[in-house]
Design a protein around this nucleic acid. Structure first.
Lengths: 81, 81
DNA sequence: GGCAAGATCAACCGATCAGTTGAATATGGC
DNA sequence: GCCATATTCAACTGATCGGTTGATCTTGCC
Protein backbone atom coordinates (compact mmCIF):
# COMPACT_ATOMS: atom_id res chain seq x y z
CA UNK A 1 0.00 0.00 0.00
CA UNK A 2 1.50 3.34 -1.04
CA UNK A 3 1.73 6.32 1.32
CA UNK A 4 -0.95 8.18 -0.62
CA UNK A 5 -3.20 5.10 -0.42
CA UNK A 6 -2.78 5.01 3.35
CA UNK A 7 -3.53 8.73 3.54
CA UNK A 8 -6.62 8.59 1.35
CA UNK A 9 -9.27 7.68 3.96
CA UNK A 10 -8.03 10.26 6.45
CA UNK A 11 -9.05 13.91 6.62
CA UNK A 12 -5.56 15.20 7.31
CA UNK A 13 -2.49 16.37 5.43
CA UNK A 14 -0.09 14.04 3.64
CA UNK A 15 2.73 15.43 5.75
CA UNK A 16 0.99 14.31 8.93
CA UNK A 17 0.40 10.81 7.53
CA UNK A 18 4.03 10.69 6.49
CA UNK A 19 5.06 11.55 10.05
CA UNK A 20 2.89 8.79 11.49
CA UNK A 21 4.26 6.22 9.05
CA UNK A 22 7.78 7.19 10.03
CA UNK A 23 6.95 6.49 13.66
CA UNK A 24 5.27 3.17 12.85
CA UNK A 25 8.35 2.18 10.84
CA UNK A 26 10.69 3.08 13.70
CA UNK A 27 8.48 1.05 16.02
CA UNK A 28 8.73 -1.94 13.70
CA UNK A 29 4.97 -2.21 13.15
CA UNK A 30 5.31 -1.59 9.43
CA UNK A 31 8.11 -1.64 6.92
CA UNK A 32 8.59 0.68 3.96
CA UNK A 33 10.20 0.03 0.60
CA UNK A 34 10.77 2.71 -2.01
CA UNK A 35 10.23 1.70 -5.64
CA UNK A 36 10.58 4.66 -7.96
CA UNK A 37 8.82 7.65 -6.47
CA UNK A 38 6.37 5.49 -4.55
CA UNK A 39 6.96 4.25 -1.00
CA UNK A 40 5.22 0.92 -0.37
CA UNK A 41 4.16 0.19 3.20
CA UNK A 42 3.74 -3.29 4.60
CA UNK A 43 2.32 -4.36 7.94
CA UNK A 44 4.65 -6.50 10.07
CA UNK A 45 2.21 -9.04 11.52
CA UNK A 46 4.55 -10.32 14.24
CA UNK A 47 5.47 -6.88 15.47
CA UNK A 48 3.25 -7.04 18.53
CA UNK A 49 3.93 -10.59 19.52
CA UNK A 50 6.43 -9.80 22.26
CA UNK A 51 4.13 -7.15 23.70
CA UNK A 52 1.22 -9.58 23.67
CA UNK A 53 3.26 -12.20 25.49
CA UNK A 54 4.33 -9.64 28.04
CA UNK A 55 0.73 -8.60 28.59
CA UNK A 56 -0.27 -12.20 29.17
CA UNK A 57 2.18 -12.21 32.02
CA UNK A 58 0.88 -8.94 33.43
CA UNK A 59 0.05 -9.38 37.10
CA UNK A 60 1.01 -13.04 37.22
CA UNK A 61 3.41 -14.21 39.89
CA UNK A 62 4.77 -17.03 37.78
CA UNK A 63 5.91 -16.09 34.32
CA UNK A 64 3.88 -17.31 31.37
CA UNK A 65 5.01 -20.65 30.04
CA UNK A 66 6.45 -19.14 26.91
CA UNK A 67 7.25 -22.44 25.18
CA UNK A 68 3.66 -23.61 25.56
CA UNK A 69 2.41 -20.23 24.45
CA UNK A 70 4.56 -20.27 21.31
CA UNK A 71 3.38 -23.80 20.48
CA UNK A 72 -0.18 -22.63 20.90
CA UNK A 73 0.44 -19.73 18.58
CA UNK A 74 2.02 -21.95 15.96
CA UNK A 75 -0.91 -24.36 15.87
CA UNK A 76 -3.86 -22.03 16.36
CA UNK A 77 -2.84 -19.00 14.38
CA UNK A 78 -2.69 -19.21 10.59
CA UNK A 79 0.80 -18.88 9.12
CA UNK A 80 1.47 -15.83 7.01
CA UNK A 81 4.12 -14.94 4.52
CA UNK B 1 0.20 -1.63 48.50
CA UNK B 2 -0.44 1.88 49.78
CA UNK B 3 0.03 4.98 47.64
CA UNK B 4 3.08 6.03 49.62
CA UNK B 5 4.54 2.52 49.17
CA UNK B 6 4.09 2.78 45.42
CA UNK B 7 5.70 6.21 45.46
CA UNK B 8 8.69 5.20 47.55
CA UNK B 9 11.02 3.87 44.82
CA UNK B 10 10.42 6.83 42.52
CA UNK B 11 12.25 10.14 42.58
CA UNK B 12 9.17 12.28 42.04
CA UNK B 13 6.49 13.97 44.10
CA UNK B 14 3.64 12.14 45.78
CA UNK B 15 1.18 14.30 43.86
CA UNK B 16 2.57 13.05 40.55
CA UNK B 17 2.30 9.42 41.70
CA UNK B 18 -1.24 10.10 42.82
CA UNK B 19 -2.06 11.41 39.34
CA UNK B 20 -0.59 8.32 37.68
CA UNK B 21 -2.51 5.99 39.98
CA UNK B 22 -5.72 7.82 39.13
CA UNK B 23 -5.09 7.21 35.44
CA UNK B 24 -4.23 3.54 36.00
CA UNK B 25 -7.45 3.16 38.00
CA UNK B 26 -9.53 4.79 35.26
CA UNK B 27 -7.84 2.46 32.76
CA UNK B 28 -8.80 -0.54 34.88
CA UNK B 29 -5.22 -1.73 35.35
CA UNK B 30 -5.39 -1.31 39.12
CA UNK B 31 -8.12 -0.87 41.66
CA UNK B 32 -8.02 1.29 44.77
CA UNK B 33 -9.72 0.83 48.13
CA UNK B 34 -9.62 3.39 50.90
CA UNK B 35 -9.31 2.06 54.44
CA UNK B 36 -8.93 4.87 56.96
CA UNK B 37 -6.51 7.44 55.66
CA UNK B 38 -4.66 4.90 53.51
CA UNK B 39 -5.54 4.07 49.92
CA UNK B 40 -4.66 0.48 49.03
CA UNK B 41 -3.82 -0.25 45.41
CA UNK B 42 -4.25 -3.64 43.80
CA UNK B 43 -3.13 -4.79 40.37
CA UNK B 44 -5.89 -6.18 38.15
CA UNK B 45 -4.12 -9.12 36.51
CA UNK B 46 -6.68 -9.63 33.73
CA UNK B 47 -6.76 -5.99 32.73
CA UNK B 48 -4.58 -6.46 29.68
CA UNK B 49 -6.09 -9.68 28.46
CA UNK B 50 -8.31 -8.11 25.81
CA UNK B 51 -5.41 -6.01 24.54
CA UNK B 52 -3.18 -9.07 24.38
CA UNK B 53 -5.78 -10.99 22.39
CA UNK B 54 -6.18 -8.09 20.01
CA UNK B 55 -2.42 -7.91 19.52
CA UNK B 56 -2.31 -11.60 18.68
CA UNK B 57 -4.67 -10.81 15.85
CA UNK B 58 -2.60 -7.89 14.65
CA UNK B 59 -1.87 -8.28 10.98
CA UNK B 60 -3.69 -11.58 10.62
CA UNK B 61 -6.22 -12.01 7.87
CA UNK B 62 -8.29 -14.48 9.84
CA UNK B 63 -9.20 -13.47 13.38
CA UNK B 64 -7.60 -15.35 16.24
CA UNK B 65 -9.56 -18.38 17.38
CA UNK B 66 -10.59 -16.76 20.60
CA UNK B 67 -12.21 -19.85 22.15
CA UNK B 68 -9.03 -21.85 21.69
CA UNK B 69 -6.97 -18.98 22.98
CA UNK B 70 -9.11 -18.64 26.11
CA UNK B 71 -8.85 -22.40 26.75
CA UNK B 72 -5.10 -22.14 26.39
CA UNK B 73 -5.01 -19.29 28.87
CA UNK B 74 -7.14 -21.22 31.36
CA UNK B 75 -4.89 -24.27 31.31
CA UNK B 76 -1.44 -22.69 30.98
CA UNK B 77 -1.73 -19.64 33.16
CA UNK B 78 -1.99 -20.05 36.92
CA UNK B 79 -5.27 -18.87 38.40
CA UNK B 80 -5.10 -15.93 40.75
CA UNK B 81 -7.41 -14.52 43.33
C1' DG C 1 11.82 19.33 -21.14
C1' DG C 2 7.83 20.56 -18.63
C1' DC C 3 4.54 19.30 -15.58
C1' DA C 4 2.40 16.35 -12.28
C1' DA C 5 2.56 13.00 -8.62
C1' DG C 6 4.63 11.20 -4.51
C1' DA C 7 6.68 12.23 -0.48
C1' DT C 8 9.43 14.71 3.00
C1' DC C 9 11.28 18.82 5.29
C1' DA C 10 11.32 22.74 8.37
C1' DA C 11 9.01 25.98 10.85
C1' DC C 12 5.11 26.98 13.27
C1' DC C 13 1.12 26.80 16.56
C1' DG C 14 -2.42 25.32 19.79
C1' DA C 15 -3.35 21.57 22.74
C1' DT C 16 -1.94 18.32 25.94
C1' DC C 17 1.21 16.14 28.95
C1' DA C 18 3.81 15.41 33.09
C1' DG C 19 5.84 17.07 36.45
C1' DT C 20 6.22 20.60 40.77
C1' DT C 21 4.66 23.37 44.61
C1' DG C 22 1.98 24.91 48.35
C1' DA C 23 -2.46 24.45 50.25
C1' DA C 24 -6.13 21.75 51.82
C1' DT C 25 -8.61 17.74 53.57
C1' DA C 26 -9.23 13.39 56.01
C1' DT C 27 -7.67 10.13 59.24
C1' DG C 28 -4.90 8.08 63.07
C1' DG C 29 -1.66 8.15 67.04
C1' DC C 30 -0.43 9.83 71.34
C1' DG D 1 -6.81 18.24 71.11
C1' DC D 2 -2.65 18.52 68.74
C1' DC D 3 0.38 16.85 65.56
C1' DA D 4 1.71 13.74 62.01
C1' DT D 5 0.61 11.01 58.10
C1' DA D 6 -1.71 10.05 53.82
C1' DT D 7 -3.50 11.88 49.95
C1' DT D 8 -5.53 15.05 46.72
C1' DC D 9 -6.34 19.63 44.75
C1' DA D 10 -5.45 23.66 41.98
C1' DA D 11 -2.43 26.44 39.68
C1' DC D 12 1.59 26.67 37.30
C1' DT D 13 5.49 25.66 33.98
C1' DG D 14 8.36 23.65 30.50
C1' DA D 15 8.31 19.92 27.35
C1' DT D 16 6.12 17.29 23.99
C1' DC D 17 2.59 16.14 20.81
C1' DG D 18 0.09 16.32 16.57
C1' DG D 19 -1.38 18.67 13.30
C1' DT D 20 -0.78 22.50 9.26
C1' DT D 21 1.50 25.08 5.62
C1' DG D 22 4.52 26.16 2.01
C1' DA D 23 8.76 24.81 0.13
C1' DT D 24 11.59 21.34 -1.71
C1' DC D 25 13.23 17.16 -3.76
C1' DT D 26 12.75 12.90 -6.51
C1' DT D 27 10.60 10.29 -9.93
C1' DG D 28 7.41 9.34 -13.82
C1' DC D 29 4.34 10.62 -17.62
C1' DC D 30 3.42 12.82 -21.87
Amino acid sequence: MAVTDVADPFDMSLAAISKHLMILTRAGLISQEKRGRVKWCKLEPDALRAASVWMQGFGQFEPVNLDAFERFLATELPQRE
